[in-house]
Amino acid sequence: MNLKAKQKRPVQTHIVVFIIPALIIYTVFVVYPFLVSFRLSLYDWKGLGPMIYVGLGNFVKLFTKEPFNQQFFNALKHNIIFFVVTMVVQNLVGLVLAIILSRRIKGSAVFQAVYFLPVTLSLVVVGYLWTLMLNPMWGTVNLILRAVGLGSLARPWLGDPHTALLAIIFVNAWQWIGFPLLVFLASIQGIPDEFFEAARIDGASEWHVARYITVPLILPSITMVTIMTFIGTMNAFDIVYTMEGILGSPFFSTDVLGTFFYRTAFGTVWGTPGNLGFGSAVAVVMFLMVLIVSYTWLRITRKHEVQY
């Protein structure tokens, strides 16, 4: 299309008219607050009272001053654990299940629906349900353990600093496993059957088929799910908040960047004043981490994708 033809096209007024309201909403409620929080991160501001410009002071405080740096790196460590464990118990298991279900075993459709069901539940419901099940006194988890003679394994799952974070990660994976499963299943079903047939005729085992055909050909989906898991786990907040509260109970052993941010920005329910400036600095750091890692990851994995 040459330039002249482009200019001659009538102005699509109706498109502009229809876009503007959404654009205004998006600008006012997303773009503007986003930019404001960047600006806020350069100020010391408790919400009431004066806004004091401190330059990069908030960031220096976050990385160097106790107890903020301790709490920050403690929370970051938990986010990383959250990501790694979720990759295994949610995405790896989801992948295995997807491969099994792709073989069109009996009841495949039912299993798909069952695995996907928790995704549709409200997170608060899931958090509450599992808090009950993990309750040390009447929770079904401990009751079952005792019933099968493993009573020594029964413990206050959400109150023990060694198990609390893992319990939350497990609950989160339990809720979301249906999502990677569905994505993987869809991509596996998109692979031409000839590839599998050819491999099987050549005598490839199930493992070899999975390792050399399925996984390489669904790599784009794996990349996407990995990045979404990364973003989701780095920004984790709601499940921790529902199950362990704002302090990442017990004593910060489940604290993640999300809860750390909430505490620093808005304070605690009892009246510790928050600092919106410092909280914004935490949010900015979270955003940059997610952005840089996701982008680099995408760049690297793009190169390994197989076209067919």
Binding site: N135, P136, M137, P156, G159, D160, P250
Partner: peptide, 10 residues
């Protein structure tokens, strides 16, 4: 027993 995991409402 298990008081570490017992919440206020419990």
């Amino acid at each position: 027993a298990g008081f570490e995991g017992i919440s206020y409402t419990d």
